[in-house]
């Protein structure tokens, strides 16, 4: 394992801002894994830390193919994690809206450029990312529906679901999109949480990456059994929306299978405790996403089913 500084800038009163990468193998740039890019992405950081531990072991046991190089960057934004701020500390900009970056531009453009110049030539790119709303997901792989990545490769992770999502205007400045512009097959991994560590889904993510690496021949890894993925489009997800704002009380958990008409959550009046609204399953299915804040707003898709 080789530890290397991917990018560094000096701080005025803080220690230097450093992005650190861990390199395994000395061959062709084969796989790059990127963890937290925002200050609340603790689970994403944790997943990468577990991967660094695992790949270090694989390297020591000579189970990484000699002609491949794997780079893991657990954290692209230590400044924001250390201050528990989601976006860049001074100007609140999002590094994941700055790709491919610009070396003479503003700070987060420079950071994005510093990262991207080091990782753009890898054959595969995996990013642990998070949703803008607080909530829990069924672990899954996402890929954009127009681009260089493909569903067959996404299924090699053996995650329960592969989600194809429609490209939106803001996507053009994300890492995933730009990786594909530079001919890297890019995939986003969603584990169940963001700002809290969930060891079970982190373990599932680590396993899925090992499975992927085994499948493309990067590592020797023993695993039994099939791990089929269900492929869906984000347009197929059924949103269950609130009509009222209030206290959100879930009645089911992510991953539960429910019949049509099953009560899924209640919106409680914050003053008198009365139930203002009950959300019901519009059809039979599985809970894919569940809002996790105790407060919810009206007109919000608090639950997504598949």
């Amino acid at each position: 394992m080789k530890k290397k500084i991917i990018y560094e800038i000096k701080g005025l009163y803080r220690d230097s801002f450093r992005i650190t990468g861990f390199e395994f193998g000395k061959g062709k740039k084969s796989l790059c894994i990127v963890g937290s890019m925002r200050g609340n992405e603790v689970q994403q950081l944790y997943c990468c830390s577990q991967l660094v531990k695992k790949f270090r072991q694989l390297e020591e046991e000579r189970r990484i193919r000699p002609d491949v190089k794997i780079l893991i960057i657990p954290c692209c934004n230590p400044y924001s994690i250390n201050t528990q701020k989601r976006f860049w500390t001074i100007d609140n900009t999002d590094i994941n809206r700055m790709f491919p970056g610009y070396d003479l531009g503003e700070t987060t453009q420079r950071i994005a450029d510093g990262i991207f110049s080091q990782i753009k030539d890898y054959e595969y790119g995996i990013q642990f990312t998070s949703f803008y709303m607080p909530g829990e997901f069924i672990p899954h792989v996402r890929l954009m529906d127009e681009g260089y990545s493909d569903v067959i490769t996404a299924m090699k992770f053996g995650m329960p679901y592969v989600v194809k999502r429609t490209v939106r205007p803001y996507d053009t400045a994300t890492l995933n999109y730009n990786w594909q512009v530079w001919n890297t097959k890019a995939y986003s991994l969603y584990t169940s949480t963001t700002s809290r560590i969930d060891k079970k889904s982190a373990g599932q993510a680590v396993l899925s990456i090992l499975r992927f690496c085994k499948s493309v021949g990067f590592v020797k890894y023993q695993e039994n059994g099939d791990h089929p993925s269900i492929v869906i489009s984000d347009k197929e997800l059924i949103s269950v929306r609130t009509a009222k704002s209030g206290i959100f009380e879930p009645l089911v958990k992510v991953g539960d299978s429910v019949d049509e008409g099953t009560p899924l959550a209640e919106i409680i009046n914050p003053y008198d405790g009365s139930v203002m609204e009950t959300l019901y399953a519009p059809r039979r299915g599985t809970l894919f996403f569940m809002h996790s804040d105790p407060i919810t707003y009206a007109e919000t898709a608090v639950i997504k089913m598949v």
Binding site: I9, G11, E106, T107
Partner: peptide, 8 residues
Amino acid sequence: PIVDEGSL
């Protein structure tokens, strides 16, 4: 007044 490297 406070700037990072790259600030406009």
